[in-house]
Amino acid sequence: MSTPLADPPQTRNPYALSRLAHLAPMLALTFTTGIVDAVGYLGLDRVFTGNMTGNVVILGMALAGADKLPVVGPSLALAAFMVGAIVSGRVLRTAGTGWTRRTTTMFAVVAALVVLTGVLAAVAGRPAEPVALTITGGLAFAMGLQAAAARHLSVADVTTVVVTSTITGLAADSWLGLRTGQRWPRRVLAVVLIAAGAFTGALLLRVHLSAGLFAAAVLIIAATTFGHAVTARDVRRSTEAEGCGR
């Protein structure tokens, strides 16, 4: 009998997993990305640690000398994000489909990194540039891990780090556009949640730079625990049903 949440190489997950086990955590992680990006942009010299499109645009304008925009921070965030995505993709390469133990591990590492950057921010107070860049790199690496793990789960319209494609689908598939069926509730939720996360992150910055990071870490831990627990429950029920059918 297979071990619950095992990682069989290059095989499809044989269990019918609850869609809620994937969707709800991804929406929660979208909210946390809003918090982390607000902390990065407002507290770490206009750097996005989750939204790499923003960093590419900022970097392009900065290279043109516009408005004294930062170059080092966005460049570091881009590089760290890509490394994180590579690491996560490598780990999940043979993990099979669906939520597995490796998926849980990736999100747990994300939470740990966000906690560590929060601790560093708390100790540093108003961080000097080297410390600020360390926090930026750590957060971007964590968001790269998260984005690649979310991509592996393939929850439609919820990438956890950007909502441009989600907004495009919401408008293009609407009654005024293609008039095709669409998952508009999750699309609207994804957009609203990342905005609400940014709003929350901006408010928490009034308390301290680390406040938003600790709040984001708690939510990441909760989302990961929920996803893992619901998946384990579905695997257990599937295994019991298979046993009864024999």
Rank of each mutant, 00 (worst) to 15 (best):
S2M: 13
L5W: 06
A6I: 08
Q10Y: 14
Q10C: 13
T11F: 08
R12A: 09
L17P: 03
R19H: 15
A21N: 09
H22L: 15
L23K: 00
L23P: 00
P25L: 06
L27M: 01
L27I: 01
A28T: 11
G34K: 00
V39Q: 06
Y41D: 07
G43S: 03
G43V: 06
R46G: 04
V47H: 04
F48M: 05
F48E: 01
T49G: 06
T49P: 01
G50M: 00
M52W: 07
M52E: 08
T53Q: 10
N55K: 09
V57Y: 01
V57C: 03
G60I: 02
G60C: 07
G60V: 02
A62C: 07
G65V: 10
G65M: 08
K68L: 13
K68D: 15
L69K: 10
L69I: 12
V72Y: 05
S75I: 10
L76K: 03
A80T: 10
A80W: 06
F81W: 06
G84R: 10
I86P: 00
R90T: 13
R90M: 12
L92P: 07
R93F: 07
T94D: 15
A95M: 03
G96E: 12
G96D: 09
W99H: 11
T100L: 12
R101G: 15
R101F: 06
R102M: 10
R102G: 00
R102N: 01
T103C: 09
T104D: 04
M106I: 15
F107A: 02
V110P: 00
L113Q: 01
V114M: 09
V114A: 03
V115L: 14
G118Q: 02
G118R: 05
V119L: 14
V119P: 02
V119M: 09
V123L: 14
P130M: 12
P130K: 13
I135C: 07
I135S: 04
G137V: 01
Q146C: 08
Q146T: 04
A148M: 14
A149W: 06
A150M: 14
R151N: 14
H152I: 06
S154G: 11
D157V: 05
T159G: 01
V162K: 02
V163N: 00
V163F: 04
T164G: 12
T164A: 13
S165N: 15
T166F: 06
I167G: 07
I167N: 13
A172D: 15
S174Q: 07
L178P: 03
R179F: 05
R179P: 02
R179D: 14
P185V: 08
P185Q: 13
R186F: 00
R187S: 11
R187P: 02
V188K: 08
L189D: 04
A190C: 09
V191G: 06
G197S: 01
A198L: 00
F199H: 07
L203K: 15
L204D: 09
V207D: 14
V207A: 12
S210G: 03
S210V: 02
A211Y: 09
G212D: 08
G212E: 11
A216T: 04
A217N: 10
L219F: 13
I220D: 03
T225A: 15
F226N: 00
G227E: 12
H228E: 11
H228C: 10
H228G: 08
T231S: 12
R236A: 15
R237I: 10
T239R: 13
A241M: 12
G243S: 09
G243L: 14
